Simulated scan of single mutants.
Amino acid sequence: MAEYRRRGGNDDLPRPTAKRLQRPSWRDTRLVVGVLLMLVATVGGATAMRHYDSSVEVLQAAHTLVPGQRIDSDDVRTVKVRVDGAAKIYFSGADAAPDGEVLREVRPGELLPRSAVGDGSQVQVSTVALPVDAAQSATLVRGSIVDVWVSTKAKSSTGQESYEAPQRIILRALVAQVPQQSGGLSVSSGQGAVHVLVPEAKVAAVLAAVNQGAKVNLVPAAGSPLKGS
């Protein structure tokens, strides 16, 4: 009798062979293409940023600049800004210190406009030294805005010194220089006085009051920069 062998089970099924992971090679086209795409994206992004970066370097006031002052390198610093037409409105950061004199007050941190510097003949104020009490000058800084009040001496038959009611003779004057505090009780004149920018039309009246021994008071305007503020 013939014998039949039945084939069955899993012994006769093909078995998959595990493949080992291979390290990528520069000869792998996909790796080369991927690296090239990354390089193109990086270079393209940097180029686009430079193309669309509209910022320019301009000069900025490092501290208060006052009319009549000549500007040197310590008075300004270079900053980058994005302002339409900035190169035409403000002094470029590539320039040296502007040649000329400050024509108007420029606050610390303010961009330096070309219109604020020019010929000294255009300055319409003069610096006048005003004697004030040390308590008043101690609160002031360069750039403070003050109203100038004076009290003229009153005529007295008794010989006692007295003064008329104070009158405001200058509104919102700019302080150009304050005295160094040396521990004295008061400042009288000259080096110890507060230097204030006085409009040309008011200089004569201010000097007359000071020369006649009037009391001078400097009252800070609202919002004026003060020492410690």
Rank of each mutant, 00 (worst) to 15 (best):
R5E: 10
R7K: 13
N10G: 10
D12L: 11
P14C: 05
R20Y: 00
L21I: 14
T29H: 08
R30W: 12
R30I: 14
V32M: 02
L36D: 03
L36E: 06
L36V: 13
L39I: 13
G44A: 11
D53H: 04
L65A: 05
D74P: 00
R77W: 00
R82H: 10
G85M: 02
A86W: 10
S92K: 09
G93Q: 04
A97P: 10
G100W: 07
E101W: 05
R104T: 07
R104W: 04
V106R: 05
P108M: 02
E110H: 09
A116M: 06
G118H: 05
V123A: 02
Q124N: 14
S126Q: 15
V128A: 08
L130T: 08
L130Q: 03
L130W: 06
A134L: 00
Q136T: 03
T139F: 13
T139S: 14
T139D: 11
V146D: 05
K153W: 04
K153Y: 00
G159L: 03
S162T: 14
A165R: 15
A165G: 02
Q177R: 15
V178C: 01
L185T: 14
S186D: 08
Q191L: 07
G192N: 06
A193I: 02
V196H: 01
P199A: 02
V203W: 01
A205V: 03
Q212N: 14
G213E: 02
A214P: 02
L218Q: 09
S224T: 13
